[in-house]
């Protein structure tokens, strides 16, 4: 993606202007985050009189309160259990369906695929009432599995679409060779096609992780007990809670940012691929 520097229509002044513009944009993105970070180390007494500058006397009390009394630590651990399970199921469902749509022939391939495509954009609020009712009927309210199931169902259409395009672009010869060897369809998928699709599966995992980690409406309705909340739900609920002042809320926000930022630093390449997987080819 690097392009040769000499091929550019910009003169030195234009270049400087663009740089300045980019720096302003970056500052605009970072200032709210700086604000949260600095507030999280201020005492409740200091914050109102010093909202802008660094804390005069940095304290860790807010973190202690947010992590333990505010249960942010617990919520983070909850997310760290639900989301990976959700992502694993999501991968299984999407890879199987993507392979069927992308590399197999059956009468309903096109209509079913169109149906799946049609469902990639449904708003969650359209489904929320009935989904929470359905989960209750299945006696999965207040279970991690309940919310995982709802997540996988909701995010699967897009994942299936991505896997379908990927499998469809793979040469058919792989399948044929395996077939001639007498491998069963499941075997072909598990030992031939899925391994070939690993880079895309990694991207799929990142997409699934981000979607599920940041999900709110379903977890709000399905995880009713405080001890079960996800970190995203925890933050949304904390905001309205009595007794939570800006510095404590800020500490909670910082705690909630940790895992996504680590994931970002570790898997930036796959995130980049994930953004482009939906629509751009090659």
């Amino acid at each position: 993606m690097i392009r040769s520097k000499q091929v550019t229509p910009f003169g030195p002044f234009a270049r400087l202007g663009v740089q300045a513009f980019m720096v302003i944009l970056v500052l605009a993105s970072l200032l709210p985050l700086y604000n949260v970070l600095s507030a999280s180390f201020k005492s409740i007494e200091e914050y109102p009189s010093n909202p802008i500058m660094l804390p005069q006397v940095p304290i860790l009390d807010n973190y202690q309160y947010a992590a333990f009394s505010g249960h942010l630590l617990r919520f983070t651990l909850n997310s760290l259990v639900y989301v990976p399970i959700g992502v694993a199921l999501y991968i299984v469902v999407c890879v199987m369906a993507g392979y069927a749509f992308g590399k197999m022939r059956f009468a309903l391939n096109k209509p079913l695929f169109l149906l799946v495509l049609f469902m990639t954009i449904f708003p969650q609020l359209l489904l929320a009432t009935q989904v929470s009712k359905l989960i209750s009927i299945m006696h999965l309210t207040n279970t991690g599995f309940g919310v995982v199931l709802a997540w996988v169902a909701y995010f699967a259409p897009f994942g299936t679409y991505i896997m379908t395009t990927y499998f469809a672009d793979m040469p058919y010869e792989f399948v044929e060779a395996a077939r001639i060897d007498g491998a069963s369809p499941i075997r072909i998928l598990v030992s031939v096609m899925a391994p070939l699709a690993l880079p895309m599966v990694a991207t799929l995992a990142i997409i699934g992780f981000q979607s599920m980690w940041n999900e709110l409406p379903f977890s709000m309705l399905i995880l009713q007990n405080e001890s079960l909340r996800t970190v995203t739900l925890g933050i949304a609920v904390l905001r309205g809670q009595y007794g939570l002042r800006v510095p404590i809320l800020s500490a909670a926000l910082v705690i909630a940012m940790v895992v996504p930022l680590i994931i970002f630093l570790l898997f930036q390449r796959y995130i980049t691929l994930g953004v482009t997987a939906g629509a751009v080819k090659g």
Binding site: P32, N214, T232, A256, P260, L261
Partner: peptide
């Protein structure tokens, strides 16, 4: 990366 919930609260 941080998502709508966190950004909304921030």
């Amino acid at each position: 990366l941080l998502g709508y919930v966190l950004m909304g609260v921030i």
